[in-house]
Write a protein that binds this DNA or RNA. Sequence first.
DNA 1: TTTTATTATTTACCTAGTTAAGTATATAAT
DNA 2: ATTATATACTTAACTAGGTAAATAATAAAA
Lengths: 131, 131
Amino acid sequence: MNPLIHELFQKSRFLSQEANNTLKKHNLFASQWSVLYCIQRHKEMTLTQIWRYLNVEAPTITRTVNRLAELGWIEICSGKDRREKVVKLSQQALEQFPVINSAMMEFEDRMVVGLTDEEEKQLLKLLQKIR
Amino acid sequence: MNPLIHELFQKSRFLSQEANNTLKKHNLFASQWSVLYCIQRHKEMTLTQIWRYLNVEAPTITRTVNRLAELGWIEICSGKDRREKVVKLSQQALEQFPVINSAMMEFEDRMVVGLTDEEEKQLLKLLQKIR
DNA sequence: TTTTATTATTTACCTAGTTAAGTATATAAT
DNA sequence: ATTATATACTTAACTAGGTAAATAATAAAA
């Protein structure tokens, strides 16, 4: 296997494991957090907006959103179009958000601490060339 | 989310999807292939050697190896130590291996076609600095 | 030799991604 | 107005990763 692709997979697994570790004390998984995060940024979103934004398939989001609702992180409302579901953060999620967010920002900084700002930019640029 | 980490996750998903696509005509999934590939390189391996090499947890390998055996790709033998299982490619796997391998090498080349050799080296180096 | 600790693998149960096919609503075409 | 098509979401079934705990065999210690 191309060592580049191999390394990319390894880092991806490593990072999601570390993210899960960081989120453990808040009873969240990384993918759940990524959904909460993008809902927070957009105030409210439909499921389609979420899966398009995160670039995953619809059923993944259906499942994660339902789980987050069960756990009390989000509220599911219905939009004008009766097919679509609009989703927003619950009160408790809004309150906890800043704490978790800063923990995650620290985590992210920790992960790239070995890179200078210039290298970070470079790495992002190179990753974008894949495909 | 740090755009770098976000991009890395996106590419990881993209690459494994594309790898699955490439392997579809050979009735394999990317993770199954990665197990076959490393067994082939080492002629035979114990489960522990496999999961250490691929840097995943043991239960993942137990499952994939059993599936590969069911599908007739590998044979499971028992080593001297009666706890361990030794695994090697089946006859049909040995025959099909070169075809699939060259398809995968083409795939890998296609994925990094946007990068010069220098950029590939650079990208690998930068990825290794994560953590 | 008996007990204890370690190692190899498995089992059970989560999250998380995929595809394929199904349902319900909305929109467009006839 | 009916029919056909597209859109939003869901369900089912699969691969694939993880942790925690169980089992069996081996190695080390008492």
